[in-house]
């Protein structure tokens, strides 16, 4: 590995010098809406270096198009000053960035050791049967995949629907859940609702019911959009705690003044 005099790695692009301004290229074709771009700029502003925003921006791109498209990756490249190839290299590394359509609901059934010991494979087969979709594929409504450990070992077997958790499943309940998703087609996937309808033993007491939930096959996290966020559009240029949880540092602070 090559390192320059300042200890910076030269693997792909030089580290951004503090205070460097980056301008989105003028010829960049921005197809995202104004509010999405505002959201993207809000995320970029949270990191000391622009490149760090690649992962959250990839989620934004998924939300825009329902999956990760070439256009979405190009937008992320233009916003971060990287090449589309660099963005694709990152996107292809992480399993949660999906370049193929996953349907409206992505069901990820855990098949790691603790779930396996308690019948996780039977749950996966039941989901495949009920959905009529083999693991790794999707139709217009439901996508099915096997997942590696999702951190619900105390409530095994478990699965995620649009990354919202259901614990203590049985093959029967899992099948019913797929039927319900197909017939009721809920707009919002809420973990507490799913758990009440189809779940069983939990890893621990969830205690508080939450209204918020997922609106697509990507994690429901405020910067990328959740059910609650969807109703209150982000105002352009807004910064501060309610969305970002971050106050801009005082002028002359430790961070590079990046725009």
């Amino acid at each position: 590995m090559w390192i320059d005099e300042e200890g910076y790695s030269l693997r792909s692009q030089p580290y951004q010098a503090p205070g460097t301004r980056y301008q989105v290229p003028e010829n960049a074709l921005m197809t995202w809406s104004v509010s999405t771009l505002a959201r993207a700029h809000d995320i970029i502003a949270r990191y000391p270096q622009r490149r760090s925003a690649v992962m959250p921006l990839l989620y934004i791109a998924m939300r825009e198009d329902g999956r990760l498209t070439d256009d979405g990756m190009r937008q992320v490249a233009d916003l971060t000053g990287l090449t589309p190839a660099q963005i694709q290299s990152v996107a292809s590394f992480y399993v949660m960035y999906k370049t193929e359509a996953q349907g409206k609901y992505l069901v990820s059934v855990c098949s790691s050791i603790s779930c396996f010991l308690l019948g996780g494979d039977d749950v996966l087969h039941a989901v495949e049967q009920a959905a009529g979709v083999p693991a790794g594929e999707a139709d217009d409504v439901i996508g099915v995949e096997h997942a590696e450990c999702i951190g619900a070992c105390g409530g095994a077997p478990a699965c995620l629907v649009n990354f919202e958790l259901v614990e203590g499943l049985t093959p029967e309940k899992a099948g019913e859940m797929i039927e319900w998703l197909r017939n009721a087609t809920p707009e919002v996937i809420n973990a507490d609702e799913l758990q009440t309808l189809f779940g069983g033993r939990r890893s621990f007491d969830w205690a508080i019911k939450e209204e918020n939930g997922a609106i697509g096959p990507y994690p429901a996290f405020p910067p990328f959009g959740t059910a609650a966020q969807n109703t209150t559009a982000l105002e352009p240029g807004r910064v501060g705690p309610p969305v970002g949880g971050k106050v801009p540092p005082p002028s002359g602070g430790g961070r590079g003044a990046e725009v």
Binding site: R46, Y47, S52, M55, P56, L58, Y59, F93, Y94, V95, M96, Y97, E148, C149, P219, F221, F224, P241, G244, G245, K246, V247, P249, P250, G253, G254
Partner: peptide, 22 residues
């Protein structure tokens, strides 16, 4: 934030979500 508990100490915290890689 810029003045943690009135001490003048400055601390920012950002939550970063991974994407499925052990």
């Amino acid at each position: 934030g810029s003045d943690v508990m009135g001490s003048g100490y400055h601390l920012d915290i950002t939550v970063h979500l991974g994407a499925g890689a052990y």
